[in-house]
Design a protein around this nucleic acid. Sequence first.
DNA 1: CTGAAAGCGCTTACAG
DNA 2: CTGAAAGCGCTTACAG
Lengths: 344, 344
Amino acid sequence: MRRRVTLKDVARKSGLAVATVSAICRGKGDFFHISRKTQERVLRIAEKMGYRRNSLAFSLRTGSSNFVAVLGRTFRIPVTQERQNFIAQLFIHLGFQALLYDFHWFDGKEEELLHTVEEIPCAGMVVSDVNTRRLFQTLRQGQTRLPCVLVDSEYHAGLDHVYLDRSSVSYLAASHLLKTGYTRIVYTIPVEKKFWLLQERRRGFVRAMAEAGRQASQANFLWVESEGKFSYQIGLELGEKIATSRKKPEAVMALNDQIAIGLMRGLQRRGLRVPEDIALVGSENLPEGEFCQVPLTSVDFRVKEVAQQTVELFRRRLSGDWSDFPKEIVVQPELVIRSSCGCR
Amino acid sequence: MRRRVTLKDVARKSGLAVATVSAICRGKGDFFHISRKTQERVLRIAEKMGYRRNSLAFSLRTGSSNFVAVLGRTFRIPVTQERQNFIAQLFIHLGFQALLYDFHWFDGKEEELLHTVEEIPCAGMVVSDVNTRRLFQTLRQGQTRLPCVLVDSEYHAGLDHVYLDRSSVSYLAASHLLKTGYTRIVYTIPVEKKFWLLQERRRGFVRAMAEAGRQASQANFLWVESEGKFSYQIGLELGEKIATSRKKPEAVMALNDQIAIGLMRGLQRRGLRVPEDIALVGSENLPEGEFCQVPLTSVDFRVKEVAQQTVELFRRRLSGDWSDFPKEIVVQPELVIRSSCGCR
DNA sequence: CTGAAAGCGCTTACAG
DNA sequence: CTGAAAGCGCTTACAG
C-alpha cells in the first residue's frame, strides 16, 4: 500500500523547501535563479521517487484548471466517436486532462450529465451535437467567459461554433452526380427533424441542381422515418422501396454511409445493380465504404480538421483572446470518388 | 464572469457555519441531528444559488477519490468502444467521475498515457486490452491495493481480470457448423501474435472438432497477416484467396464480424454464394452483421455483461473486500444464428 | 537564491 | 444541534 509521493516528500528528501521544489518541478527554476545543479539534483530525486503532480491540488490552488470537458453524442456513431477521440488526443498532448462524456449516458436528460460535469471546475468545455433547445439553454446559462466551443450543433447562436459545411456535402455529391450525367436524383432526408443542419443539406442540393440548370422539386426528396432505427436497417428498407417503386431514380444520395451501405444491399436484393441501374453516394466517408461490394463514393467529413480547428479556437479563448467572439468556423468537406457512381 | 458558488457562499447566505452546510449537502444532516427544517432551508438555498460540490476539493480532502480511470484501446474498434462506453456509464450512474483514456492517443508508448492518468489520484482503474508486457509491468509496479481490474487482457497474472471466454467463442461457432453438417472448416487466425487469447480460440475450435469425432489439423487454420490493415480489407483479400483456392472449404470461421463481412464480399466477388457455396460465421455480433447481404451468424461478445461484472468487481474491491483476490471472471459468449450458415 | 505563510474548497475530528 | 480549527497537496506573493 504505497502512499502517493508528494512535493513535501521530495522536499524533505532533497533538504529544500516545498516552494523551491515546486518551482523547479514547474520548470520555473531559472526564473527564480535556482542553480542548475540544484535543479538537476531535485529533478533526479523527484523522478526516482516517482513524484507526479497532483492535478487536483494544482487546479484547486491556481483556479486555472487543467481539465477540459468534451461532451457529445457518440455512442455507436463512428464519425462523432472519431471526432471526440481526435479532440481528446489533441488536448491530452497539449497537457490538458480531457474528460470525455457521452450524452447517451443520461439519455433524454442531458442536463443531468452537465451536473456531473460541473462537479469538476474545468478550464472550459467542448460540446458537440447540441441538438435540443433545452440543452443549449442550460449551456448558455452556465458559467460565461469560460471557453465553450460548440461543434456541429443545431443550436449555437451567440457561442463559438465549429462545424462541417453541410450544404457543401450535398452540393459536392449532387454536382458529381450531375456532372457524371445523372439527372433523376433522389436525396434521402429524415422526416422528423426540421433542423438547420438538414436544411443546409437541402440547400446545397438545390444549389447544385440550379447550377446545372435544373429546378429541384419535392420529387427529389425522399423523406424517411429514422427515429429509433439503425442506419443500416433504414438503408435496407429504403433500398427495397426504391427498387420496387414505379419510377426509379437514376441516382440516390444517402444521408450517410451506413444508410448508403444498407441501401446498396436493399437494391441488390431486388436485383438492381450499383451503379449500372442506380448510382449511389454516401457521406461521412467511413472506412467500410471502401470495402463495400461496390466501393462507395462519399463525402468526407474531415473530422481531424474539425477537431484541430476546435482545439485551436479553444486555446485562443483560454489565452484570453475573445476578439472575434462568437466565431463561426466552417470546415469544408471533400468528395471521395470510388465506384458507386460509375461514369457515364 | 460568474464565480463558482462554494460552500462558503451558501453558508454565508444561510447564516450557518460551513461545516454544517457541508454535512447537510452530503446528506449527513440526520446523522448530526440537524433539524429537518434547517436542512430543507439550506438545500433550497444551495439549489437556488446553483451550488455544486467541487470534486477536486472533495477528493483532495478525503483522499477517497471520486475518479476512476478507464483505459483501453478503443479507436475505431466498435466492440471495445462500446465496452468502454458501458463501463463509463455504469460508473457515472454510481456517482463516480469516469475518466476515459485511449491508448491510441500515445501509440506505442502506453506508459506516457499512464503518466497523464497518474496526475489524478484515482480511486482505482479499469484497464482493457493489456497486450504488451511492458504495459503490464508498468501497471503492476503502480500503486498496489488500489482496485485495478483488467478486462480482456493478454497479460493479467496476479490481478483481477474479467474477460470473455474466447475458447467458447470458437467452440460455439464450430459446433454450430459441425451440427449443421459442415466438416471442411477453415478458421482464420492472425499470424503475428502468439497470444493466449488467440490460442484459446484455437483450443475451442479443436475441442468442438474433437467432440464431433474429428481431429483438427493445420489445414483447418488459415493464418493471416493483419498487421496495420483494416479488418474489412483483410476479409476481402481472404475471401478472394479462399474463392480461388484449389480445395475450397465448406465453411469459414472469421476472427470477427468485420473480417467476415469483408470475406463475404470477397467470396461474392469471385462468384461464390454464402451460404450455398461456403458458410460463414463471424464473432462479436456487431449491429451491421444483421444487415449484411446475407445476415451474418455470429457469436455475441456480451459487452454489457462484461462491463457489469467489471464494475461490480471494482466496487467490491473499493469497499475493501479483497477476499478472493486475484479473481478471474469469465463471461460466456452467445451464439446468434442468422442466415450465413444456412441449414443442411 | 531559498523559505515560511496563506489559502484554493472541502471534510473531519473535536469542542461547546 | 452548531461552529472553529486543522489539513489534503499544491502555488503565490512576500520576506530575507
